[in-house]
């Protein structure tokens, strides 16, 4: 390459600054232009997941947890701990979707599960985020025998109402005998144990809390914040 002719520093700075300013304008325009669609996509993905884990859900209200109290959240409002109550066609509480997370085999596993106060059991389960090994650990999402664990997983409270009568435990593949056991998957032992642990820890606190605030949840369907499924 021939030697570049001498260029003043001012021209270099101007060229860089010019490109920088144009890039900035382009990025801001794209961000503003795509933001509504991106937020819509995220909300739709969460909504689909909620109605996936609560069979019979037709509308939902999201609640925030403030210490020992529940309050309905306005749309778009953020909260540290959220529970999504789903209601059936008649406005009766069909279940509550709860987000939980914990260490999986690779990175953090984020899951969503549905709790039904009628059967006092978990009625649905979905992995929101995972980096489990494709073909092995990700069987927690795809294996139908494993997902069948969450059709009616017993988490009923004991007589005092202060603890779960039979906390969720892990069972080896083919050895599930109780309604509160999660049957593991061959080839995905660590991932299925991780799911068991996440649900065990989450339900120990959340189910008791939800049972105490059941009336608030049931009344939620009459609030003005109900979002219909579409």
């Amino acid at each position: 390459m021939p030697a570049a002719e001498q260029v003043s520093s001012a021209r270099m700075v101007m060229a860089m600054a010019g490109i920088g300013i144009l890039s900035g304008i382009l990025l801001v325009a794209t961000y503003i232009g795509t933001l509504p669609a991106i937020e819509r996509n995220k909300a739709a993905a969460l909504e689909r997941a909620i109605f996936d884990v609560i069979p019979g859900g037709a509308s939902k209200v999201t609640f925030a947890r403030d210490g020992e109290k529940l309050r309905p959240l306005a749309e778009g409002e953020a909260a540290a701990v959220r529970y999504h109550a789903a209601y059936d066609e008649d406005g009766a509480l069909a279940g509550v979707a709860i987000e939980a997370q914990g260490q999986g085999f690779a990175d953090v596993l984020k899951v969503l599960y549905g709790y039904s106060p009628d059967c006092r059991c978990i009625v649905g389960f979905k992995v929101l985020e995972s980096k489990e090994t494709p073909g092995l650990g990700d069987k927690i999402e795809t294996d139908s025998a494993f997902t069948a664990n969450f059709e009616a997983l017993d988490v009923s409270l004991d007589e005092s109402g202060g603890a779960i009568a039979n906390p969720i435990v892990f069972a080896k593949p083919g050895q599930k005998s109780q309604a509160w056991q999660i049957e593991g998957i061959t080839g995905a032992t660590i991932s299925s144990k991780a799911v068991t642990r996440i649900l065990h820890e989450s339900t120990a606190d959340v189910v008791i809390f939800l049972e105490r605030n059941l009336q608030v949840l049931r009344d939620g369907s009459s609030s003005s914040l109900v979002a219909k499924s579409n």
């Binding site: 570049a4 260029v7 270099m12 060229a15 860089m16 010019g18 490109i19 890039s23 794209t30």
Partner: peptide, 25 residues
Amino acid sequence: LIPKQVRIASYILIIASFVTVTEYL
């Protein structure tokens, strides 16, 4: 318009902007 001395930095700036645009889209 781009002086030879700062061309690589300029290219990276241009490429990075379009990558971010792509990511949003």
